[in-house]
């Protein structure tokens, strides 16, 4: 209901409205806090491992292998090789490496894999979708641009995604870049389709006609006038896609095609830990629960964004 005081109040900007809707949602607050914590961990990892060298995820201490969390290093370990905190906060793995240090290092790598893969996927999807939607009627010989791009999207959709990723990653030399690129190159089709639909419906509206009448080139119309109006669903998809990219990376690690050493990711810590489920359950549960929390946070944040950006979905 609109009360008189609402009418007197200055109209709230759309950004304010979205921010208020986000803040009002408990799940969104929780996921924002979780993600902030993970970012902080990644940052702390960079500082503690890279800059100060306080923690070392790569030091192998065989006498101290498979120690439970919070245990102290044994006396045989040289002082220089002891963990910076004095204890193994999250225990050690089968090579006596500090799991806490590896988890911190892994949080940065895991997030990077997720973000870069999604950045690639979203960029391709937005480019293909907006070109197909706005310049679709341009002819290339017997075909239209729209026809060519969308049939290509159909072709890509025909490949079973995980099978395709697995094939590509297995055939290419193992490297963290290949994994990010392959996950990105196989994940853009959905974005391309709905950006195209969005652009098609926006392109018929008067403000686009006005922009074209001013003589703006197509790239400027797309970038300045069309895409900002299609940004909301793209943002939601991107958020949820980061979550699935992290899951795909951990699945690849399980099959032995994940990010290769020396990089630690939560996925390959988890997959290494599965061999010690009984002897060292913390090696398995800690990265597993960490992945669960982060993926959950990204999904809930995506859901919260969807509801906040779409007034029709907002709870009354």
């Amino acid at each position: 209901m609109t009360t008189p005081s609402d009418l007197d109040a200055p109209p709230r900007s759309r950004a304010r409205e979205v921010a208020d809707a986000l803040r009002g949602d408990r799940a969104t607050r929780w996921s924002a806090a979780t993600l902030a914590l993970v970012l902080l961990a990644a940052l702390a990892g960079e500082i503690l491992i890279g800059a100060t060298g306080l923690l070392d995820p790569a030091t192998v201490r065989l006498p101290d292998k498979l120690l439970p969390p919070l245990s102290a290093p044994s006396a045989t370990i040289a002082v220089a090789e002891r963990p910076g905190l004095g204890i193994y906060l999250l225990g050690t793995d089968d090579l006596g490496r500090d799991v806490f240090a590896r988890m911190l290092e892994g949080s940065a790598v895991t997030l990077t894999v997720g973000f870069v893969a999604v950045a690639i996927a979203i960029s391709i999807g937005v480019a293909v979708g907006s070109i197909a939607g706005y310049l679709g009627q341009v002819r290339l010989g017997p075909f239209t641009v729209d026809g060519v791009l969308m049939r290509f999207t159909d072709v890509m959709l025909c490949f079973p995604t995980f099978f395709l990723i697995l094939t590509a990653v297995a055939l290419l030399p193992p490297s963290i870049y290949n994994i990010m690129v392959v996950i990105g190159l196989t994940g853009w089709m959905g974005t391309a389709r709905f950006v195209r639909a969005e652009v098609l419906s926006l392109a018929r509206q008067d403000f686009v006609l006005a922009a074209r009448a001013l003589g703006l080139p197509p790239t400027r119309v797309i970038v300045r006038h069309l895409l900002p109006n299609a940004a909301a669903p793209v943002l939601v998809t991107a958020t949820v896609s980061v979550a699935s990219a992290i899951l795909v990376e951990s699945s690849l690690s399980f099959l032995g095609f994940g990010v290769p050493p020396p990089h630690a990711t939560w996925g390959n810590i988890l997959s290494d830990g599965k061999d010690y489920v009984f002897d060292a359950p913390w090696l398995f549960t800690i990265p597993g629960l960490a992945i669960l929390a982060v993926v959950l946070a990204f999904n809930l944040l995506g859901e919260g964004l969807r509801e906040a950006l779409d007034p029709r979905l907002r709870r009354r």
């Binding site: 951990s250 996925g267 489920v277 597993g288 669960l292 959950l296 999904n299």
Partner: peptide, 13 residues
Amino acid sequence: YALIAIPGFFLAY
């Protein structure tokens, strides 16, 4: 949401 977010092989183990 938890079922969607949990890595499949972690849950399976």
